[in-house]
Design a protein around this nucleic acid. Structure first.
Lengths: 193, 193, 193, 193
DNA sequence: TATGAATGAGCATTCATTCAT
DNA sequence: GATGAATGAATGCTCATTCAT
């Protein structure tokens, strides 16, 4: 299926995996290209051959991570849409705590290297949230005056910081516990079907 | 008021001001001591004379910033306690957007240099929030099952994220608009007196 | 004419052409094999397949270029031999200005990679000049004390430098103008027949 | 006399000396900053503290070297001006063979790093030559049609290549021998007083 | 013959830190 | 108290070369 560039694709994947872990754990500036290459099991030059620069690798990584998150958010068979968003988000950040840290470190750095990329990516994610929240709004379930856009952005942001708080300060709590806590709060704003 | 070291205090203040702006905009690792010193109008050696190291300067800066925030949160005579927390927090992050960026970049960096300091500082802030939320809980205003601690941490995190979103993506909205939006959401969880 | 390896010869020629331009413009050390290959429209590996190394490519290029120059200098039936040398040299460096730059950059680099090759090549050229100058000497036309060898080397060097000066600092002058200027000087040393 | 920056001036001088020798011997691209720093007896960072970049160091070096040459060319008590130019030039390139190689390598590289600087410097030197040659022209000593500017540029170029030829291919000849050989040729164009 | 992904030694540059003044 | 020249370990990046296809 994958023609010739199978080797390249594999190399890039190895680099993504290694970079995702290291960059989240320690921040973009603290991780060296040497480390990423070593963790991926390739030579340093390979990073540059495939991505051109450290910044470009991180940029590609951010896009890749957000794609993964978007995939997990999309599905969901039937109702309980909000609960699915909450659960899927927490699950994603549990699986890739590194990525959450990377996001939160770079998302609001206005003249930052990746601000442009992250603005776009953030919009992608918030749009998915908004789709669900809007449905509740259409059903008249949102409190008077609450706008779907504002609520969606706030919900995503809250999930992000709650997930990080969980991983960093209360790693012993289970996913279910955290999701239930969050849902109790969310249900105050968006009642269940 | 400031006792003897008037000269030192001034120098430190100049360094705080310069460091706060630069570190927030570009992240701790991206800013050099040279830049901070230049922006403060002092020689590089002066940073080391006054703080000992770059890390120590940032550590002191974080403590200083959180003290400022704590001061603003504390006051407020009587009711509308929750609204005061929300308004004061948003106001603080509007006044010191760089500090919000710095916090969010470093707060969840587990093996980070300032993780220890930030854990303590976070506890200080959340404790203030919890005091207020607990009062609502005691008055039976929290939904069944919602814990004051969890709600407080989530509220602080949400405010942080919302404030940054505001400053970076919607700088045209007024403080009142943002505060009202947030309160609409919060009132779903913590109804007004 | 070119025997069997028509394909190889073509590839080598493409590489020569590309290398000549790039190496002259920017110096041997500043040009990468990638660039040469790209400019020649072949893959990088092809350079190594055909020449073995970057140094060997440059070595071959130098030999090739000096052969071309020697060919142009040789002909000329009868008199006006000196004028022919001057004219042919200037013409050659006008046609291959990059080669002149390459020569001048590497010719006097004592521990240089191509010093050996260039010494031999220089001798070839100077020998052709000497042949002509010696004829003038035999005819008693050289000033008392001037040696043919010294005068030949100086003449070649001067032509090289004058040609480069012309191309770089006075590209508007015509070949005839430059040749006439040089001949005025040369005639002071080697009078016409 | 030299106030405080005596240390800096000394450091720069040490770097100039070391760089002049190394760069001439092996060409700008072949010499590493590490080597220059080591040869100067300072740390690598010191090069960057004082010059900002390797390119800037070389640029400064070119200006410095041309100043030295200009100084040597200027003086000369009375007549024999042309002979002084020839002798002083050869002497300079004998003392700094490295510099001659550097000059010749970079002077005609049109899109080169230092082409701008070298154009200016070349003009300085040629102007000094022209002053002397013009005097001969005014005295009616130049052959009919020879222009002072052209002759000056050619003379400087010739001296440059002759000096390099001497150092590289005939290091056994004495300065006097070479100067006399050159003067024999020059006298054909510019007769003695 | 030709290709291009992968390599890794080598290099220019940065920057936190020191210390003599 | 303050300074800034000097340091050198660390880092991002380059590029000639190799080799499996």
């Amino acid at each position: 299926m994958t023609p010739r560039p199978a080797r390249t694709a594999l190399t890039k994947q190895k680099l993504f995996d290694a970079a995702l872990r290291l960059l989240g754990e320690r921040g973009a500036a603290e991780v060296t290209v040497d480390e990423i290459a070593a963790a991926a099991g390739v030579a340093k030059g390979t990073v540059y051959y495939n991505f051109g620069s450290k910044d470009a690798l991180i940029d590609a990584l951010l896009r890749h991570g957000v794609d993964l998150l978007a995939q997990r958010l999309r599905p969901d068979g039937d109702d309980n849409a909000v609960e699915h968003l909450v659960g899927a988000s927490l699950e994603f950040f549990r699986d890739y705590p590194a990525f959450g840290q990377l996001l939160v470190s770079e998302m609001w750095r206005s003249p930052g290297q990746w601000h442009g990329t992250l603005s776009l990516l953030r919009d992608d994610i918030v749009a998915i949230f908004k789709e669900v929240v809007q449905r509740s709004a259409d059903a008249g379930k949102l409190p008077e005056g609450v706008q779907a856009g504002t609520a969606s952005a706030a919900l995503f942001g809250t999930l992000l910081v709650v997930a990080l708080d969980w991983q960093v300060f209360q790693p012993d709590r289970s996913l279910d516990q955290v999701r239930d806590s969050v849902m109790l709060l969310v249900r105050g704003v968006i009642p269940a079907a």
